[in-house]
Design a protein around this nucleic acid. Structure first.
Lengths: 270, 270
DNA sequence: CGGGCCGTTTCATGTTGCGAAACCCCTGCG
DNA sequence: CGCAGGGGTTTCGCAACATGAAACGGCCCG
């Protein structure tokens, strides 16, 4: 029985477990092992194992008093992260458009990835020079204004762990001296914006700021990139402060992560 | 290498696939097969299969142009359903408290399950008689005011499919005549509330109304249950209209299902 | 034109997922 | 008080199937 064009790479246990996850999470109420088994037509032994595994991984939660399953904390976490990023992205769009025109430069929005920034949106001015970064690309944290803005505002423990990894040299100017980087990050934290001059891409200079979520964590960052020669120190400072204002206005209106069902499920049942 | 008290029922392919799902969905940006494989330390062949399976199931989406994965539509659906139900539940709470005192009866909030209603919250008056229903219990659609309220407001095609299943007789009074049920549902749709007199539980009478989500679908329902002898027809009518108002006020303020990241991901990348 | 990076396909192997059946516990009922 | 029944948990033997090394192929970049 062929289902879709090509099943050959589908892992069956995973497929069936996802069926279980979808059923439990989408039905909006607690369910018993029995009902999973009968509704989905999966033998109860197998359903039992899937429920266990899904629960262990935090995708479901299990009330041992009533032996019922429901959506778990992980689903809430995913929804929350997505809501935060989506709303930041949405709120940033008009500001980015304005900034692109205002500075006639490239304006970037990026999220923090694992040891990198990943570009979400890149607004380019009509005529101007083009930067390398495209939506979806990843660049190092230590070589970009976006990354330095994020590093400077995350908990110190975390930033140090990133800095302890090998620091790749993107250009001749890339800072790979850890002590110097840490000094810079302290300055960034104080004045609110980060700068980068040809450290990530030759001939490009960039000013970046973090966008803090409701926990104060720099989940996203915003930056303007210009050709090196068009950016004077005073210009950069003005741009930095302008970006700080923009980021603050986004933070203030960002999704406040509403209480999730997963949390409600943690309360006593009756 | 023991991980938690008891791994014996954990299905390994599922566990690892969930690791992949968590990584991709939680990181908030598109990722490549390579990065999944290296970050999670899973051989790329295996990671490939998991990504395929997760994508097939709608938990991830795959941009074939750039070969990148991100959160899929199913995650949005789950978040939306939960948000709707949570907010209804939250908004209902104070009203339910009021109604409990006002009628000195049991007030129920339930979600539509597969062919049943599942009780979310049950408010009981201090002294009074107790009904059978507890939070988490499931009762048939056709024998409860909650269920009839829901049946009357769902698309006809769907309600007919439920009515075509065998109708269990809960008490001597349970309506199992389909034609008569359909006649009743039409009346319910017209006046806005459903009634039930000892059809689900002996000696109890119940008035229920649907709570419609933004699509007009009766996802949740609200009801008041009283001992049969304490409920006159005129009393029931007043209660019904009171409940209709309450439901409308909940519907109006219910979570409007914000645009999700999964939808945004469907837009062209750059 | 050539090298390397990354996604896809193949294939032989034995690990491990599977589900029938037995077991156990709790609840409701006579 | 004990019996029956419905769910959840555990056991166990077997073969299905997940696995990952290696080979392949396409695309980009130099």
């Amino acid at each position: 029985m062929p289902k879709t064009p090509d099943d050959s790479y589908v892992v069956q246990p995973v497929e069936k477990a996802l069926l279980v996850l979808a059923y439990v999470a989408e039905c909006g109420h607690v369910v018993s092992l029995k009902s999973v088994s009968t509704v989905l037509g999966i033998p109860k032994t197998t359903a039992f194992r899937y429920l266990q595994t899904l629960t262990r991984a935090g995708f479901l939660s299990h009330d041992s008093r009533t032996d019922r399953y429901s959506g778990g904390p992980r689903l809430g976490a995913i929804a929350r992260t997505n809501a935060r990023i989506d709303s930041a992205r949405e709120l940033a769009r008009p500001l980015m458009r304005d900034l692109t025109a205002e500075y006639d430069g490239t304006v970037n929005l990026a999220v923090k990835g694992d040891g990198s920034v990943v570009y979400l949106d890149v607004f380019e001015p009509p005529g101007g020079f083009r930067t390398k970064a495209r939506s979806g690309d990843a660049h190092p944290l230590h070589s970009t204004a976006l990354g330095k803005a994020i590093l400077a505002f995350m908990p110190e423990e975390e930033s140090l762990s990133y800095l302890s990894r090998p620091l790749t040299e993107r250009t001749g100017r890339t800072l790979i001296d850890r002590a110097e980087l840490i000094r810079q990050l302290r300055l960034v934290a104080r004045r609110g914006y980060a700068m980068e001059t040809g450290e990530n891409e030759d001939g490009a200079m960039c000013v970046g700021v973090p966008i803090l979520d409701e926990r104060g964590y720099p989940l996203v960052a915003l930056s303007v990139t210009l050709p090196l020669q068009r950016m004077s120190p005073s210009h950069a400072m003005k741009a930095g402060n302008r970006l700080v204002d923009a980021a603050r206005s986004i933070s203030a209106r960002m999704a406040p992560a509403p209480a999730t069902r997963a949390m409600a499920a943690a309360l006593p049942g009756h």
